[in-house]
Design a protein around this nucleic acid. Structure first.
Lengths: 129, 129
DNA sequence: CAAACATATGAGCAGTTGTTCAAGTGTATG
DNA sequence: CATACACTTGAACAACTGCTCATATGTTTG
C-alpha cells in the first residue's frame, strides 16, 4: 500500500534518516486532526481575541462593555466574538436587546495560563544565561 | 487620574455596566503581556508548524527529514523552523552540515495535548446534544 | 580547492486576516 | 407604530503570512 507521498516529489534533498521518518510518521496524528488543532490555536493568535478572552475570564460582559474596555468599535468586537463563538470558546445569553458573553470552556483558562507560564519561564531562563 | 481611554472615543455605544468594566480592567494583565501571549499562540496557529512540532515530539529530526515527512520544500520547512526557533519552541544541534531540530520546551507537548483535549471534548459534547 | 550537498535567507506574490463603514435585525419604550 | 438602542453582518481595503524561486553560506570530500 503506497501512500500519496510518492505521487509528487516536493523535497529537493536526500532523505537522511528513513527509519526515523517512518517511526515519526506512524506516531503522528492524521492531517485533519493537526489541521483542526492549528485552526484552534489560530483563534488565540490575535491580540483582540486574547483580550476578550482574558476579560471574560474575570466576568461576563456585554458587547458594549467589551467595546469600551478594549477601546474598539462595537462592530470590530462583534466580528471577533463571532469567531470565538464558532470556536466554541465563548457562549452568550440574551437579555432583551443586550447580549452577555462568557467563556464556554474550562480549558480556555488553562490554555491561557499554560501560555503565560511558558513566556515567564522563558524570560527567567533567558535572564539566567 | 484619568486614563487615556478618554482621549479618543472609539466606541459607538453607551456603557452598560461601568462597575463590571472597572473590575475586569483591574484584573486584566497589561497590554504588552497579552500581546506577547497572542504572538506566542500565533506560532501554533499554522498547520505546517503544528506538524513540525508534532513530529519533533516523537523524535529529533533534521531539516531534510522534515521536508520529506511533510512533503514540502526544504526551503519552506526552513522558514518555519526559523519562526519556531525565534519563539523558543525548538532548539537545534549541528553535526557537520546536518542540523538536527528538537523541541525546546516541556510546555509544548502540554499545550498541544490541552488543545487536542479541548477539540475531542467538544466533539463529544456536540454529538451528545 | 572545486564540486556536492544540507541548510539558510531575501524578494516577490497570492491568499488570508482584521478593521472600517454602511446597512440590516431585533427588542424595548414612549 | 415609530424611534432608539444593542448588536450583527457584508463588502472593501490595507496589512500580514506562507510559499516559491533564486541565491547565499558553510561543511565535507575527492
Amino acid at each position: 500500500m503506497k501512500d500519496s507521498q510518492n505521487d509528487l516529489i516536493r523535497c529537493d534533498c536526500t532523505v537522511i534518516h528513513e527509519d526515523a521518518v517512518q517511526t515519526v510518521r506512524s506516531h503522528m496524528p492524521n492531517d485533519e486532526d493537526l489541521f483542526d488543532l492549528a485552526e484552534f490555536f489560530k483563534v488565540f493568535g490575535d491580540t483582540t481575541r486574547i483580550k476578550i478572552l482574558s476579560a471574560l475570564s474575570s466576568s461576563e460582559l456585554c458587547v458594549c462593555d467589551l467595546a469600551v474596555l478594549l477601546n474598539m468599535t462595537q462592530s470590530a468586537v462583534s466580528h471577533q466574538l463571532r469567531l470565538l463563538k464558532q470556536a466554541r470558546l465563548v457562549k452568550y445569553r440574551k437579555a432583551g436587546k443586550i447580549v452577555y458573553y462568557s467563556l464556554d470552556d474550562a480549558h480556555v483558562g488553562t490554555i491561557l495560563a499554560q501560555g503565560h507560564q511558558h513566556l515567564t519561564e522563558e524570560l527567567r531562563q533567558y535572564s539566567n544565561r
